[in-house]
């Protein structure tokens, strides 16, 4: 699987993502700086977590308007797999590649802890490595992960199975509506999620629950 990791000033989880992709796919991803207007021919594009542009204006708002995001949108429209984690999810929403918005955590506090996730839809390229309804562990670290969508959008994404991960067992860390932790776009090839699967892929992380996400993708795009 060939992959690319997008880099913007202020993103700081790119190294974790690069390490995870390298370890699991056996191939180091290409890194692409924000000013690039074209992307290499890859199977998967990842926007990692962090604090692009210092979270100025709104989380991900400025990053989403950088030239590279136009190229990401073009690739997404062609069916290339795109995944945004944490700030990457915020950027995908701000870029209009996924519906809804992420707001300040209901607690107003930055949360950095482990949560439980329910695989709400295992029938996607990103979640095929899990069983339907499986509960997995996953770390979160964010200040603005409180997913919101207007009632019409919410019922549409719920009805279409676009909610793929939900916080489970009372671990919703941010007040997110319907415990939403991750969603996919209508085409099924764009995923945004607040938790960090790349930080739970090997024994040294204390578990490998996040690994199946990447391995599932690998099966799809190998």
């Amino acid at each position: 699987m060939k992959s690319a990791v997008i880099q913007l000033p202020g993103l700081n989880r790119d190294r974790d993502m690069i390490a995870a992709l390298t370890k699991i796919s056996g191939k180091a991803p290409v890194t692409v700086w924000q000013t690039e207007t074209e992307l290499p021919d890859v199977d998967l594009i990842v926007i990692p977590g962090g604090f692009s542009y210092g979270d100025y204006l709104r989380c991900g708002a400025i990053g989403a308007r950088m030239p590279v995001m136009k190229a990401v949108a073009e690739k997404a429209a062609k069916g290339v797999m795109v995944m945004g984690v944490c700030n990457g999810f915020q950027i995908l929403l701000e870029a209009g590649l996924l519906p809804g918005a992420l707001m300040r955590n209901a607690s107003l506090k930055f949360v950095c802890r482990e949560v439980k996730l329910e695989v709400a839809n295992a029938n996607t390229a990103f979640t095929r490595g899990y069983a339907p309804g499986e509960i997995i562990r996953c770390p979160v670290a964010h200040h603005d992960g409180n997913y919101f969508a207007d009632p019409g959008t919410l019922s549409r994404i719920e009805g279409e199975g676009q909610v793929v991960f939900r916080y489970a067992e009372g671990t919703n860390p941010n007040g997110s509506v319907n415990d939403i932790a991750g969603i996919i776009g209508e085409g099924g090839n764009v995923l945004g999620m607040m938790p960090h699967p790349e930080n739970l892929i090997e024994a040294a992380h204390g578990g490998s629950d996040g690994r199946a996400l990447f391995e599932g993708l690998l099966g799809k795009a190998a």
């Binding site: 400025i62 308007r65 519906p99 919101f148």
Partner: peptide, 9 residues
Amino acid sequence: ERLLANTVI
């Protein structure tokens, strides 16, 4: 429309 406001919210 394009930057200052997120018209979703």
